[in-house]
Simulated scan of single mutants.
Amino acid sequence: MAKVIVGITGNEKEMPAMSGIQYVAVAKDLSEGVKQAGGLPIVIPIGQPEMAKDYVYVVDKLILSGGQNVDPRFYGQEKEIESDDYSLARDEFELALIKEALRQKKPIFAVCRGMQLVNVALGGSLHQSIQDHWQEDVLGTSHQIDIKPNSRVSQLFQVGTQINSFHRQSIKELAADLVATAHDPRDGTIEAYESKGQHAILGIQWHPEFLAKNCSSNQRLFDYLVKTL
């Protein structure tokens, strides 16, 4: 039986710093989570929007990975913060991937920035700057989540589950086609959502790939993506 092919969106990273040499970059733990679940991960580098159709065609499922802020022009706002942590090329390409994944009926698993971008693609908006959602230690967790009963997340995580937090933006207005399924009890931040209709979409605000090695629930997210979503 052929393995499920999971495309993972890549970022670009200059290595060594100040060298001018760009590498395609994605957290290894994302691809490891897919492999542990029995899938075949393929990293998709940032490309031209017109390339999205062919990329989506060759994968079975799509992971939108974490990274930069989403440019507010895509949800009808001006920039409110001083930051250079944006990539217009990445936004444009990944928005095209989302459109194609929906058109071709390919499941989407969206992580952190990816979750925010899918919300924007479907008509939602973002808080451009939030406080107290960036933990200093890459390892470990920072707060728990409240989970909506009878949701996809509730099938994978127990009440009181602790998650990590590495984001400086968050969902403001949730797109009409999505339903929130987990929140941060401290301030109500949406930590997970899923699609209401026929499209298979699961969005997670935290980074499960950093927790999956030592947390079976977070690995089950990848199992769910490969085998069920």
Score class of each variant (00 low, 15 high):
residue 114 G to W: 00
residue 177 D to Q: 14
residue 36 Q to I: 10
residue 79 K to C: 10
residue 39 G to I: 09
residue 75 Y to V: 02
residue 52 A to C: 05
residue 1 M to V: 14
residue 212 A to L: 15
residue 104 Q to K: 12
residue 28 K to R: 13
residue 143 H to Q: 04
residue 185 P to A: 02
residue 145 I to V: 15
residue 89 A to C: 03
residue 216 S to P: 12
residue 208 P to M: 07
residue 31 S to E: 12
residue 12 E to G: 05
residue 77 Q to D: 11
residue 58 V to E: 11
residue 130 I to C: 00
residue 52 A to I: 01
residue 183 H to K: 14
residue 163 I to H: 01
residue 20 G to Q: 04
residue 127 H to N: 13
residue 102 L to H: 05
residue 40 L to A: 12
residue 24 V to L: 09
residue 41 P to Q: 05
residue 184 D to F: 03
residue 171 I to W: 02
residue 145 I to F: 06
residue 103 R to E: 15
residue 227 K to E: 14
residue 126 L to Q: 00
residue 191 E to D: 08
residue 96 A to Y: 02
residue 108 I to P: 03
residue 19 S to V: 01
residue 189 T to V: 15
residue 171 I to N: 07
residue 53 K to Q: 11
residue 169 Q to I: 07
residue 120 V to C: 02
residue 46 I to Y: 05
residue 91 D to G: 01
residue 48 Q to L: 07
residue 103 R to C: 12
residue 188 G to N: 01
residue 209 E to Y: 10
residue 119 N to S: 03
residue 23 Y to R: 02
residue 137 D to G: 02
residue 21 I to Y: 09
residue 82 E to W: 01
residue 4 V to I: 15
residue 82 E to S: 13
residue 173 E to Q: 10
residue 110 A to G: 04
residue 19 S to W: 07
residue 155 Q to R: 12
residue 68 Q to Y: 13
residue 95 L to K: 08
residue 174 L to S: 05
residue 47 G to N: 12
residue 205 Q to G: 02
residue 75 Y to D: 03
residue 124 G to Q: 08
residue 170 S to G: 11
residue 94 E to K: 04
residue 58 V to P: 01
residue 179 V to F: 06
residue 75 Y to S: 09
residue 28 K to C: 10
residue 157 F to V: 04
residue 151 S to A: 10
residue 104 Q to I: 00
residue 136 E to F: 06
residue 16 P to L: 01
residue 195 S to N: 12
residue 17 A to E: 15
residue 72 P to S: 00
residue 35 K to C: 05
residue 120 V to L: 04
residue 189 T to W: 04
residue 97 L to R: 05
residue 169 Q to L: 10
residue 56 V to K: 02
residue 89 A to E: 15
